[in-house]
């Protein structure tokens, strides 16, 4: 069975219509100015109760010395979408997951600069058929050039299940 699946994946990738030239090419996708208001708006939308994200007076007394953003705040940044590999497969696409690594905290007043690249395109075959995954890696750095977050977003394309 595994061998059949692997053969199917190989066939799909050999014939897949997409722009191979953009894979591994890193481009700047813009920057985002972080405000305390946006951090609190985000934290409240998630039902956060941690005063580190909500209460400046409390946060001043912590090792951080002030409010910081919750780890997944980078999802709020409005940035360019980056290079598009134009994967032509299936009838629908959706977010399949994220791998996020966290470094320096993000603080109000920071300007976060982002770069993005398509790190891989691959096929995966299972009982329900074949899906094609596109992985986009985005690196976020603050105004001091310090890495804050590196995220790999997995997008999948497939046929709508009958």
């Amino acid at each position: 069975m595994t061998t059949d699946y692997q053969e199917e994946e190989r066939q799909v990738m050999a014939n897949l219509d997409y722009d191979r030239s953009v894979v591994g090419v890193e481009v700047e996708v813009g920057h985002h100015e972080v405000t305390k208001e946006k951090i609190i708006e985000y934290a409240e939308a998630l039902g956060e109760t941690n005063p580190l994200y909500l209460d400046e007076e409390f946060a001043k007394g912590t090792p951080y010395g002030g409010i910081i953003a919750p780890p997944l705040f980078y999802n709020m940044f409005s940035l360019a979408s980056g290079l598009d590999p134009k994967v032509n497969f299936g009838t629908t696409g959706f977010d399949a997951g994220q791998h996020a690594e966290f470094f320096e905290p993000v603080r109000p007043g920071d300007t976060i600069y982002a770069t993005s690249e398509i790190s891989s395109v691959y096929a995966k075959t299972g009982r329900t058929g074949t899906m094609v995954f596109t992985v986009r890696r985005t690196s976020y750095r603050n105004q001091n050039g310090e890495l804050t977050t590196v995220v790999e977003r997995r997008n999948v394309r497939r046929d709508i299940r009958k």
Partner: peptide, 20 residues
Amino acid sequence: QLLTNWVGLEGKVKRLDVDF
């Protein structure tokens, strides 16, 4: 949020990898 609540102010979340 589950993780930041658990690790507290002196702990740190380093990585989160999730399938939707």
